[in-house]
Amino acid sequence: MEKLKLLHMYPNMLDLYGDSGNVEILSYRCRERGIELEVSTHMIGDRETDFTQFDIIYLGGGADFEQQLLAEDLLSCKDKIAAAYNAGSFFLMICGGYQLMGQYYKDSNGEKIPGLGLFDYYTSASTDKRCRCIGNIVVETEIDGEKYKVIGFENHGGQTVNVKSPFGKVLYGNGNEFESSAEGYTEENVIATYLHGPLLSKNPKLSDRIISYCMTVRQGVKYLPKPLNDKLENDCRKQLFERLGV
């Protein structure tokens, strides 16, 4: 049986808004293709984690309080995480995870949490806690040269700027900042986004892009995932796109 390895970072702290569902969805879609997704975790204080051995490194979103608690541990892993990134591990990061990989995050209490600095973007939140981007969101991204609508739910106070290569163009909702045209950050082996939902639940092609990338790296030849029965997902997308008028 083929195997992929996923590292879930701080699952006990970064698990707001059902984000752990992304791991469940990746496991499900791997299993249906005869691939075992082996899930490991990295928690605060784990000194032995070898980041480079993982195909996927995953961080979900968390509350300000939890982000502060884990910032120090994250920084202590900086070199090892950068090594995994350079070696081609796939990075999937949601909301708080997205923010923490940038230069810094200034939270809603005005406290500056240093980021890992893997990317150039940085984030500040308004100190008015009610000032948040909240609601359904649809962005248009590109997968294998084809446009693909990604639907989710955003809920963030942080406004992220200096984003060189956004994940998608906003069709409905706010994105990186209030009423911005761009959402998230992406590279060949990076998807960083504010989308909860969880992200992969209604966007099966996005899950498959991640699985294809990892399998292609493993096998050295282009991996084409077997189509699955996505009737529920497709019906759901159709219904919501109609409702939101996109």
Binding site: G18, S20, N155
Partner: peptide, 9 residues
Amino acid sequence: GHDVSWIWD
């Protein structure tokens, strides 16, 4: 709440 992601928990 407009967000239904809680069902994943």
